[in-house]
Every structure is written in structure tokens, then in C-alpha cells.
């Protein structure tokens, strides 16, 4: 049988799925054990137990100075920034994506401009944002929006343009006005794509969040990582990275489930 035709059974597929994760943990354990055998106070690859202790300390024991549970307050601070920025980006993308996609005049006016804006490296704007907007939340949220929204607008506008011309014509023969066609034909069909687009932009959004927090913040997951870097606290950094990854994976999964539950038809073509 050709390789392209051999498929794993569900059980094997699960094992294969888990294998890389298990291998990574084992490789880390082996490497960590080897380094610690040489030098018990090595900080680069702390033992799993050290990390568990660190997580325990950060997540369940209130900080003696502020009385906060640091992991949770960091998570809350970061997620508030991330989700407000993504919410704003989604709204902007929806409005401008539909306008650019549906109205030739707006497309002529804005499409090249948005394409240009999306090429500006957002991190290069960060100093400007800090100078103009101050060091508070506004600058961080704006950075994420600038980094994420143009790509989402372009993605949605393309999706609108890709809708078969026949559908729009059909809606016109049913007596729909531009507004009605936007509301009943275009909007419902791009909302699933909006969710997918949001999922794809989660990576960049986290990047900009961590970058902004690294430079100026007094709480947040990125702030903590860059703070403890000074003490070479790998036992905190590794769990934080894993936690951020887990948050991103959960958000992405939840968004996809949301899409399927709210728009059941959007999964019907996929077999």
C-alpha cells in the first residue's frame, strides 16, 4: 500500500498526537537532570519539582507585599488588555471589511490605504504610541489593534468579495436593498470567517501584548516574564510560557466551537 493511503486508527492517532508533547517533557526532564547532576544550583533548566513549587507560590500563596495571587492578577491584567483589543479589532474589521467588500466606492477609497497600513511594522510604532498615549493601558491596547485589525479587515473584505456574484444578484431579485443584503446575506456568511480570522490573529495579538508589557507595565504575564528574567528565574518563565500557550489554545478551541454552535451551517460543507 502506498504511504499516502495508510491512515492511523483513532487510538493510534491519539497516541501520535500525544507523542510530541510527551517527548518534549521527557527531553526536558533528561536535560534538566543532566545539568542538575553537574551543578545542583543550575538555573537554566530547573527540575519539574522546582517549577511546581514556583507555580504553587505564584498561584496559591498571596504575595507578601501586595496580598495578591500573582499568577491570577497577571492573567487578569493580560486578558483584559488582550480581549479589549481583540474586541475593538473585531468591531473595526467587521464594519470596514463589509464596507470595503461590498461598496466599490469605499473599496477604491480605502483598500490601498489599508493594504499600506497593514505593512507598517506595529512594533516600530510602539515608541510613538507610548509618547502620544502615555504608558497606560491605552497604548498597549492600541498597539494590538494596529497590529491585528488591518489583517482582519483585509481578510473579511476578501471573504465578502469571494461570495458568489449569483448570491448577491439573487438577493437583488428578491427585492433586497444594499442594507438588507448586508444584514441578511453578507453579514451572516462572514461572521464564521470573522471568528476564524480572530483565531488566526491570536498569535500576533499575544506577541504585541507581551512586547508592550515587556516595555512598560506593572502587571501582566509578559511583564512578569521580563521582570523575573533579571534573576534568571526559569522556574517562573517556563510555567508562564506554558500557561500563555494553554490560554491561547483554549481560546482558539473555544472560538472554533462557538463558530460551529452558532453557525451550524458553516461546518456542513466540511467532511
Amino acid at each position: 500500500m502506498r504511504w499516502i493511503n495508510t491512515k492511523p486508527s483513532p487510538a493510534v492517532a491519539t497516541l501520535l498526537m500525544l507523542a510530541p508533547f510527551v517527548l518534549l517533557v521527557i527531553a526536558y526532564g533528561v536535560g534538566s537532570a543532566a545539568r542538575l547532576a553537574d551543578n545542583p544550583s543550575d538555573k537554566l533548566l530547573p527540575a519539574l519539582q522546582t517549577m511546581v513549587d514556583a507555580v504553587n507560590r505564584l498561584a496559591f500563596i498571596p504575595d507578601p507585599r501586595t496580598g495578591e495571587l500573582i499568577l491570577w492578577s497577571d492573567t487578569a491584567a493580560s486578558l483584559v488588555r488582550l480581549f479589549s483589543a481583540l474586541g475593538i479589532s473585531t468591531l473595526i474589521a467587521l464594519v470596514f471589511g463589509m464596507l470595503v467588500g461590498m461598496l466599490p466606492y469605499v473599496r477604491a477609497l480605502l483598500a490601498p490605504f489599508i493594504a499600506t497600513i497593514s505593512m507598517v511594522p506595529p512594533l516600530a510604532l510602539l515608541p510613538i504610541l507610548f509618547i502620544v498615549l502615555g504608558l497606560g493601558e491605552t497604548a498597549k491596547i492600541t498597539l494590538i489593534v494596529i497590529g491585528v485589525a488591518p489583517a482582519m479587515i483585509r481578510d473579511l473584505a476578501l471573504r465578502v468579495i469571494e461570495l458568489p456574484k449569483e448570491q448577491i444578484t439573487k438577493a437583488e431579485t428578491l427585492g433586497g436593498s444594499s442594507w438588507q443584503i448586508a444584514l441578511r446575506v453578507v453579514l451572516p456568511q462572514i461572521l464564521p470567517r470573522l471568528i476564524t480570522s480572530l483565531r488566526l490573529q491570536m498569535g500576533p495579538a499575544w506577541l504585541f501584548l507581551i512586547a508592550a508589557e515587556a516595555i512598560s507595565a506593572d502587571s501582566g504575564l509578559g511583564y512578569r516574564i521580563f521582570l523575573v528574567r533579571r534573576y534568571l528565574s526559569m522556574d517562573v518563565i517556563f510555567p508562564y510560557v506554558a500557561w500563555i500557550t494553554l490560554l491561547a489554545v483554549i481560546t482558539s478551541f473555544a472560538l472554533d466551537r462557538l463558530r460551529i454552535v452558532v453557525f451550524p451551517w458553516s461546518n456542513l460543507g466540511v467532511r
Binding site: 458568489p164 449569483e166 448570491q167 444578484t169 439573487k170 438577493a171 431579485t173 428578491l174 427585492g175 446575506v185 451572516p188 456568511q189 453557525f263 451551517w265 458553516s266 456542513l268 460543507g269
Partner: peptide, 15 residues
């Protein structure tokens, strides 16, 4: 609305 149409494909709304 005075002229209805049926195309070979994409005549109905998938959503």
C-alpha cells in the same frame, strides 16, 4: 423583484 432568477449554482443561501 419583477425578474426572478435561478442559476446553475449558488442560487440559494447556504446560511
Amino acid at each position: 423583484p419583477d425578474r426572478g432568477v435561478v442559476f446553475q449554482r449558488y442560487s440559494v443561501f447556504p446560511h
